[in-house]
Design a protein around this nucleic acid. Structure first.
Lengths: 222, 222
DNA sequence: CGCCATTTTGAGTTGTGTCAACCACCGTGG
DNA sequence: CCACGGTGGTTGACACAACTCAAAATGGCG
């Protein structure tokens, strides 16, 4: 597992979310919130990719989730946020005060149902993650991760370039592996002609069927 | 990982939940629902313990969650249930048709908020599980699991007998380990005087502080 | 062009899985 | 009452996949 040096500056430009603030544009590495902050806002990702991380006292991290456009960040917390969240790329988010959302749902029941449905979606995502983490081999995790990424950026199909906005360390800490193991398995997939790695920030699936074979179980698609 | 023999009879007495049915008493091994069944009911656990499992085509299983009194089963599914659910012990559940709940929430917004809060709780639980699964060592997982169990059956304190209603295979498939590894680590904890294992169905924490040391991070408590 | 961060590759170690034997518990039936 | 068989749990020996440490290679950027 890659451990970030404690001395590394966490992130520069922190955003304080005002209630009802809308369509905020943020740069890469912008922090939406830290673990322990008062959980008073919901964020809808409009564009870009965010990363939710939990950092442990010993320096180890877990990347709990990646958030793509359409995803809502801020569910599943109590009074205070349960992890840190920052932007991996330049991004835009729609910020809404939690109180406002609840008040609105009070008047418009269909909105409440939509919130519930989104919460259900997040639960399903977490189920899938825990399934991914329980799968034994590193290859299964890496292959499954690539498939779920491809599914998020449109439907997973052959010869389609998919962005890989997170670094190896993020992938490793998401899958419970080390960067070396992630790298080795990506190389293995490349040598077998299953994926292509044109540069650090993207990949191409050349043989989806065989990639799914590597993932060893039905593709996790939302 | 322990793989249940395919030939084993899944479970005898399946319950078909009628809408609005209340306070149903079920025996151990009773199946609430199977993966793929139409997700038309919510279950509130009144007493007993339930187990949510996902079975893969190759026979491997993951125990996605254990449900204790007060827990709601049935969130986080779409049209159809995403995993199997059965009782580990004789139990009682409150069954409610999903449509009824949504209709009720439509009229009573505070109910809708309660539902959202419960969904948030389930998300938090799943976050904790994925955190548990990302922890590297088997000992960390086992220790963390014992702590979370103790937390669920009252507050975790020394010299308090805690029920362990699930078998080693369930624990193993919950933590992504094998039964042998679970067993070895439990023995290790026993030899170190950290826990006691009076019988198969329970354990006693003798030194909570050292158990938390083994879990390597702040106790996961709800 | 040269520097720095990130990724890849390599060599050696170790923890956990695998396979197999053994043990403890419990209900059954002689 | 005890012998028996079955189930679930523990223990041991060994192999292998993933981790660790280290070094080389790649790519981005001033």
């Amino acid at each position: 597992m890659y451990v970030f040096p404690h001395t590394a500056p966490a992130s520069q430009n922190a955003v304080r979310a005002g209630a009802g603030e809308a369509g905020r544009v943020v740069g890469a590495t912008t922090v939406l919130f830290h673990e322990g902050d008062k959980a008073d806002a919901l964020y809808e990702v409009v564009s870009g990719v965010f990363r939710a991380t939990k950092v442990f006292s010993d320096g180890r991290r877990q990347v709990v989730a990646f958030a793509y456009p359409g995803d809502i960040i801020g569910f599943g917390h109590g009074e205070n946020y349960r992890f840190d969240c920052d932007a991996l790329t330049p991004a835009r988010v729609q910020v809404t005060a939690r109180g406002d959302v609840l008040a609105a749902a009070r008047n418009r029941p269909e909105l409440g149902e939509k919130l519930l449905a989104m919460a259900a979606g997040e639960i399903a995502t977490m189920h899938d993650l825990s399934v991914l983490l329980c799968r034994k081999s590193a290859m299964e995790r890496v292959a499954g991760f690539l498939i779920s990424l491809a599914a998020r950026s449109g439907s997973p199909a052959n010869d389609q370039r998919v962005n890989l906005p997170m670094c190896r360390a993020d992938i490793a800490d998401h899958l419970g592996l080390t960067i070396e193991t992630v790298s080795r398995n990506l190389t293995k997939l490349k040598l077998r002609g299953i994926v292509e790695l044109p540069d650090r920030g993207s990949f191409v699936i050349r043989d989806l069927v065989r990639l799914q074979d590597q993932a060893e179980c039905e593709a996790v698609v939302h």
